[in-house]
């Protein structure tokens, strides 16, 4: 009897395990994010790490939705365009993100050009956000996407084939701002990080109150945006 009970319990567990492994259709199943994730190229040969999946939408996966660890508040990749058009990752530049409540976070790019801010370090970022990378300022705002690559989509052959506006090098098009680009040689010393032993090697720092646009919050109460 005891044995029978044990068996049925394991069977139940195994079944539950199978269902979970197959991807439990959670209540907040999001076809848009799901499709975006399924369209991504396979994992880097070296496996997941802070250097992986450069140029991809980090927070589609690093979120409660997909569950990749750690949860990220923001993530992206910074490049420099070479004279032949190719994109090189830029290591050691500060990315500063300003929220609508006057808070900001700095992150430093690694050797893959990747940077990120963990969600635990910035749970209450108030959208919209403004962005600075080295000496370049984004003129527009981030409404709700926590992945830079959501708007800064790189080129793919498929996209180049179907959309005449796609720049095959940067990916800039009628729907994409293209790769996030900086010029290494013009980045002022105070915007460099990581490589310089004098500056902290930790990836993020926080400050509150500086905000963008000077006085007061930039846009009233701020939105409630954010990836799902």
């Amino acid at each position: 009897m005891v044995r029978g009970k044990f068996v049925s319990r394991t069977t139940w567990l195994a079944l539950a395990g199978l269902v979970m492994a197959a991807g439990w259709p959670a209540c907040d199943y999001d076809p848009v994010i799901q499709e975006a994730i399924e369209d991504l190229p396979p994992e880097d040969p070296d496996g997941p790490s802070e250097f992986h999946r450069a140029g991809q939408s980090c927070v589609d996966c690093h979120s409660a939705y997909y569950g990749a660890d750690p949860d990220l508040a923001i993530g992206g990749t910074v490049y420099e365009q070479q004279s032949n058009g190719s994109l090189d990752p830029v290591e050691g530049v500060f990315v500063t993100i300003f929220d609508s409540a006057g808070a900001s976070q700095k992150a430093c790019t690694n050797s893959a050009g990747n940077f990120f801010v963990r969600l635990e370090d910035w749970e209450d970022a108030k959208f919209p956000l403004a962005v600075q990378v080295g000496n370049r300022y984004m003129r527009s705002l981030i409404g709700r996407d926590r992945s830079c690559a959501g708007c800064h989509e790189l080129a793919t052959q498929t996209k180049v084939n179907i959309d005449p506006t796609v720049d095959p090098s940067t990916g800039q098009s009628r729907t994409s701002a293209g790769a996030i680009l900086v010029e290494r040689s013009t980045i002022p010393i105070e915007e460099q990080c990581g490589l310089n032993p004098a500056s902290a090697s930790s990836s993020t720092t926080t400050s509150t109150g500086s905000g963008m646009g000077g006085s007061g919050g930039m846009m009233g109460s701020g939105g409630s945006g954010g990836g799902s």
Partner: peptide, 15 residues
């Protein structure tokens, strides 16, 4: 200019 561009024209975001 800083967002989606018209499908019948050839402009780019940020252009």
């Amino acid at each position: 200019e800083l967002g989606l561009r018209h499908p019948q024209e050839l402009n780019q975001t940020g252009g």
